[in-house]
Amino acid sequence: MNLTLKIWRQAGPDAKGSMETYPVSDISPDMSFLEMIDVLNDQLVRDGKDPVAFDHDCREGICGMCSMYINGEAHGPGRGVTTCQLHMRSFSDGETIYIEPWRAAAFPIIKDLVTDRGAFDRIIQAGGYVSVNTSGNTQDANALPIPKDNADKAFDAATCIGCGACVATCKNSSAMLFTSAKVSQLALLPQGEPEAARRVQRMVAQMDEEGFGNCTNTGACEVECPKGISLENIARMNREFLKAQFTSEK
């Protein structure tokens, strides 16, 4: 396949960026999208030019590092895939592909397609944990049976990879889907119960402080989320938040 790439280039956090055009040729449909960018970068380096910076690591859809906005969609066309899992067979010969970074005030650009998603870490630090010491002096794991249904739902929420596609997709740059996934996981498990109120309040406050926007229920995040994190989690977080407001006002 031969393709034309239009890629966002930006030398540094404060530099002005622009879309640049690059042709690539001899692309195999079996290549992953990132392998196609590898081919481009290989050529750029050989030509003495600056290769395109992008985040990636596992290349199998689990680390959450890759993050490209492709043809107007977070992680490109196809549902339930990260950028690294996208294959060139999803594109056709001769196509022009537009590639941009995540765009959100809370995710400043570091270089080209690389952004700083540290805000997500800080949201977790605000309360996305169970306050248990790591000493191992805990009760036997099976002393606390957990209904399979709750365990499964908690697991589904816990599969969020923290990629930020939800934020990049949302017209308000809201981080509700991400935050609610963690709140839900711990709200569904008895271990998370004692700190539930404090957790949701602190995580929501941190989310606001980081400059993420409000949720207006457009649902775009759920559609683009590579892990199928459900909007139900947002509803659950809202309930948890209300509940927390009531209990803490008493």
């Binding site: 169970v130 805990t138 009760q139 794991a141 399979k148 365990a151 499964d152 996981q185 498990l189 271990q191």
Partner: peptide
Amino acid sequence: NIIDQCVAQGVPFAR
């Protein structure tokens, strides 16, 4: 002990 610890942290193992 690892399993006890992880369950206490809220790791959602299969049940």
